[in-house]
Write a protein that binds this DNA or RNA. Structure first.
Lengths: 341, 341
DNA sequence: TTGTATGCGTTATCAA
DNA sequence: TTGATAACGCATACAA
């Protein structure tokens, strides 16, 4: 007789034998205890404990065509914004029955598509993807996926399934309106990487400038280079050279804003009197800097938490009424836009 | 006859049928093309393409008791240090045959143990865990694991299997020696969270102070609170209150160092003349701040890259000669310790 | 180099 | 409520 080695650990039949029941009863007792009588359930639980039985996830996934994996795809691993959201996802899943499979799309739509394909091929319990700018093919794959799908970080009117985030356009607009209200006249924009969400922030900013009659295309400085504090420091120097009368900037993100502050300090430019600065996301450091930095606060943690909550609800058969959840943002006004003259 | 639906996508038998061969030949052609004749391999590849066949990873894992998963366990998702390493791991695995399953132990050894158990139960291709402070049980599990195991971020003389990192003790010592060399007299230590690696940095720092005859236990200020820029700003204030003659500090990490700089700026204390500051890790922002901040540069990206390289080598049957790789660190001297008087 | 028969550990299906 | 049996899709063991 042929023999294979297997994983060498107890299987469901070992449990069944020890408990004196059939394997399917053990399976049921583990997945939906209400389907098994108290008597047998107790015996089974005992056997499980004694044998230290752990279900083999691959066997389960093969038989049921459904794994306990939640696929999460983000465009960056080093961006604090996604790190916070990821942390929330993990916290919310804590000791739950799910495993996270994490993909890094590096802001490349084709990479995202490849990852979606790979993840879906494993029959995930759910999918979480960042943003709303999937390729048509990705969207199609996700629309046909046999699991809940949540798009995070943004909101829009055409969700694949569910959505949690906020409006980057409105965030950018709020930043611009704030600078206008503070009386700044020549207001610039600093943007790095310029992914789709950054573009929408810029659009919101432009909208605000137009409303205030202060839109100056020359004051918009963007680059596809990835964002960093050093870059912010450089860019503010370039933009001031281009227009010495620049008196405020909205930065696409907080790294650039902090860098801009450093750049001003090096050049002896007073913030906020000579130059007002607004960042985006309100990372923790923004409140600690000197001067402290105004920013648009976004609740990345809440986004991750809510996404998992919606998935759990959906999986439990209580689909959330609102498919699109706008968690908003909040302007945190600080010293960098607090003019004293 | 009984029927089940399955996943509804092409299986290896579909490919086999279309190519006019047996399933096992397809299996071989896909896993080790050299074992199949050119002729059949071509036919099989064609069939794969036409059917858009993607192997079912769970079925494969079940049959072979080995999955294509690489389990990675880190203590924090939001700490830039691990983010850089993770990014390297993903980059190195790019479009490879592996999937990353990521676990967050939150600096809790028991959580790490639970994660190791879960991951090992899936028969991973390899495991990557942070640090060397696993529980005895975790260590035992990993020692018996049927796959390569790499401990990252640190080095030590007792690897479970392989190790890539650097000596935190030496890093802390180098920071302390640098401050002594610069002529600072009353040198403090600021530490948050104080995980095992932070403790070793502190030990190295203490060693340096002892060597210089300047060890002052009162100047060591630590907290279990998690690290942040704001905290650095607060702590430096507290420590200066405790000892007004304090003239330098080594911060457990860069967030604290930046916060300490901000705290000094708020209090009107000149850095580096009145207070020297050294951070740890040398995050990107350290070079951009004003004044720029001295730090111990560590190559987190290289650590992740090397870890995966070692795994690949091991898996391909070329076990690396050196089981423990020390990637070292480098003191980046900047303005924050550049006294002008 | 290729194929046959079977097992991997679980769950869906059907029957009692 | 419980059980017998047949899938799930692939890879191992063995034979040719």
């Amino acid at each position: 007789m042929r023999k294979r080695k297997g994983a060498g650990r107890p299987t469901i039949s070992d449990v069944a034998a020890k408990a004196g029941v059939s394997t399917i009863t053990v399976s049921r007792a583990l997945r939906d205890p209400s389907k098994v009588s108290d008597h047998l359930r107790r015996k089974i639980n005992n056997a499980v404990r004694k044998l230290n039985y752990v279900p083999h996830s691959h066997a389960s996934a093969l038989a049921s065509t459904r794994s306990n994996i939640i696929g999460v795809i983000v465009p960056s691993l080093t961006n604090n914004v996604f790190a916070d959201t990821l942390r929330a996802i993990y916290d919310e899943l804590y000791q739950g029955a799910f495993q996270v499979q994490l993909g890094n799309s590096r802001y490349v739509a084709a990479d995202e598509e490849r990852l979606v394909r790979t993840f879906l091929s494993q029959g995930p319990s759910a999918m979480i993807v960042a943003g709303t700018d999937q390729t048509d093919a990705t969207r199609e794959l996700l629309l046909n996926a046999q699991c809940p799908v949540v798009q995070i970080m943004e909101v829009g009117d055409d969700p694949i399934d569910m959505m949690v985030g906020f409006s980057h356009f409105e965030g950018g607009k709020a930043a611009g309106m704030h600078l206008l209200k503070k009386g700044y006249k020549r207001i610039g924009f600093l943007g790095a990487r310029m992914d789709p969400r950054s573009h929408r922030r810029l659009e919101g900013f432009v909208e605000a400038m137009r409303l205030g009659g202060r839109y100056e295309p020359d004051l918009v400085m963007t680059t596809t280079a990835s964002s960093s504090v050093s870059l912010g420091s450089e860019l503010i120097g370039q933009l001031r050279k281009r227009d010495p009368d620049l008196d405020a900037i909205f930065c696409n993100n907080d790294d650039l804003a902090l860098g801009a502050l450093f750049g001003c300090q090096k050049a002896g430019i007073s913030v906020p009197d000579e130059l007002g600065i607004v960042g985006f996301n309100d990372l923790e450091m923004m409140a600690a800097s000197h001067p402290s930095l105004t920013s648009i606060r976004t609740d990345r943690y809440a986004i991750g938490k809510r996404a998992v909550e919606m998935i759990k609800a959906e999986l439990e058969g209580n689909p959330p009424e609102e498919k699109v959840v706008d968690l908003g943002f909040e302007l945190q006004e600080r010293e960098s836009t607090l003019r004293t003259r």
